[in-house]
Design a protein around this nucleic acid. Sequence first.
DNA 1: GCTAGTATACTTGTCTGACGATTAAGCCCC
DNA 2: GGGGCTTAATCGTCAGACAAGTATACTAGC
Lengths: 228, 228
Amino acid sequence: MDGQTSFSLGPSSLTDALYESVRKRIVNGEIAPGEKLTEIRIAGEYSVARPTAKACLERLTALGLLRRTAHKTAVVPKLDEDDIRDLYFSRETVERAAVAALARTATVPQPAARAQAAMKAAAGDMAFASQVEADIAFHSALVAAVGSRRLSRMHEVILGEVHLTMGQFQAHRTTHPMNVVHEHDDILKAIGDGDPERAQQRLAHHLDQAQGRLLGQLRRERSGEATA
Amino acid sequence: MDGQTSFSLGPSSLTDALYESVRKRIVNGEIAPGEKLTEIRIAGEYSVARPTAKACLERLTALGLLRRTAHKTAVVPKLDEDDIRDLYFSRETVERAAVAALARTATVPQPAARAQAAMKAAAGDMAFASQVEADIAFHSALVAAVGSRRLSRMHEVILGEVHLTMGQFQAHRTTHPMNVVHEHDDILKAIGDGDPERAQQRLAHHLDQAQGRLLGQLRRERSGEATA
DNA sequence: GCTAGTATACTTGTCTGACGATTAAGCCCC
DNA sequence: GGGGCTTAATCGTCAGACAAGTATACTAGC
């Protein structure tokens, strides 16, 4: 099957399920940045052995969803400004290549269009977390449509960190979801028109907006903290 | 024959040293493609416990240096034509972004220049494996100079697979190393001139050549196999 | 003789339990 | 009150064990 599978490690239900669950809790912001995740805690919470928990934490660390140095407890990272810039630079690199490739053959990927439709329909009443997921699904579909396993693999990692950062700001949304939807539409349109240049340009603009929103929230939060 | 693992490097020395050693053996072609690597074998060869060996194999699997599915033994992958094309597509994506960024500020990274010099000086008598390493070092330095942690991270993974594939063809070199050196020079020159377009174009040409060499060897090997 | 189905060996996934090593924290003494 | 020492918490690694899945060899039947 298509599997689309993620990458890497040989999946076996338990380890994988554990990984998925912890990952979800992290990217959704359920586990706050700075929070410590000990092997024992995970093992306890999920009733698995410590080695199993350890493997899970190592996987997440490799993906940048946890930070850990030898003999120290893993913590959920809080991305700072530099991190976010770096993240979006890498993200743009990957996604530019993707939309350019799609535009060259004027291929509008179905899954992306579908994600768009869903997002549009439910823009008003969707929970913020769901909107983030729809957003991620859109970009994910875009890259997946290129058909490059390795590009998708890289992108997954990047999006993981993006998801993490967005998840941590869950409470305060800064823009109406329809703005995002429109930006997405612009990208799809350029792809459909077979215009790689415009597609890249629209994408760059969209990512720039997104990055700006994240940076804005970061600054706001920090200044709020300072006064509190 | 038994790998002395007493290097003192990195954080949690044992696991890391083991990983480095096995990785080196794989990318150098010491462990042939198709060869099976069981946890027990690694554990035995290095006198470590099976969990330690397991972690090592999982790490390598995550980087694409091993393939493994649940309950099956890990094997060193042999990249086919599609893999190589995919690999080089991804590689080009990352490195294009890198050289463009460097050219924009006309920054010729010292380490890259140094790698070039070394390669040039020893082009004649260097062992093939060393030339491959110098080549890799050059490209690595190029990307590292951009200063993006995440771009470098992606690139490392890509280069791992590139190294692997090159290592497997060690015996038969198909081009004089000076050709590679000249292609590298062209790229550096374009960067130094602050010409992102030309830098990308030179890079693309270089990668195209490299990919062509790999594909050629693959085909030659396969036809040789057919007659043998 | 050959195919098919079963039995066996191998390998991995996970667990339990344990020990030394390292880091962080708390306490005592000066 | 500060510095050094003891203690607690946590990680790194190990050993051994069992179940579950996979691959292979062997036997049985045609």
